[in-house]
Write a protein that binds this DNA or RNA. Structure first.
Lengths: 123, 123
DNA sequence: CGGGATCCCAACCGATACTG
DNA sequence: CAGTATCGGTTGGGATCCCG
């Protein structure tokens, strides 16, 4: 009863996950808890304000991230995962682990151009 | 010791997973096993040959998908998950489940514009 | 049957400048 | 501090045609 090609529909659903920085944002929010905008920027060098803002808006609209604005003179905005967003925690952490392993794998493959003559100095 | 912002690096790693159809491809290959090119197209209406081919090439290059060409007059090419690719199975299936739930959630939210006064004509 | 070659558009992403 | 506005580059994805 699950043989119907709804795999495609699900992939479509996961479009909200894609977006170059969304995964990183969620991982950081899960890891650090509530974070200010500048803190997010700090742990994610390489992302611009505009992009970070838009990605946060997307996640907010999906109900995954909560945005709290403190109306004070130096603006202060805090982001955190919603209850619903936390339902992604396991998946995200598994992706994190897999991604790390995958990086290592790719790095190792760079050092094994010739296969077996280096047995003690493969970095 | 894991406080360093490698969350970003991992997100970068997951770039190979993103791509509008890669998740669907992998889910189908896991679900159905070995599949021919045309079979993949069949279970994924909406994807063109070019895109499907390129996404398969990406996955193949990452060592996630195996491509076997049978040199015969009507060409025959079979795709399947590699051993390494199967290490993603749990993640992919969790994404599948979450995606389905997320779709339902969004659908339900469309029917709850006003919360409780419409019980027979909610369109 | 499987897919390469081309053209093209839309979306995403980045840099910079400006604002409450 | 936390954005918005604008412009522009790059890329992914789609349509169509053609080939072994």
């Amino acid at each position: 009863m699950d043989n119907t090609p709804d795999h495609c529909r699900v992939a479509t659903t996961m479009e909200m996950i894609i977006g170059k920085w969304k995964i990183a944002i969620m991982l950081n929010l899960i890891h650090y808890g509530t974070m200010r905008f500048s803190e997010l920027r700090h742990v994610m060098p390489g992302v611009t304000q505009k992009v970070l803002t838009s990605q946060l808006r997307d996640l907010e609209q999906e109900g995954i991230v909560k945005r709290v604005v403190y109306p004070q003179v130096p603006p202060k905005v805090e982001y955190s995962m919603t209850e619903y967003g936390m339902s992604l925690q396991t998946i995200l952490e598994m992706m994190h682990e897999w991604g790390k392993a995958h990086l290592q794998r790719k790095t190792q493959m760079l050092f094994s151009k010739d296969t077996d003559n280096q047995n003690d100095k493969n970095n």
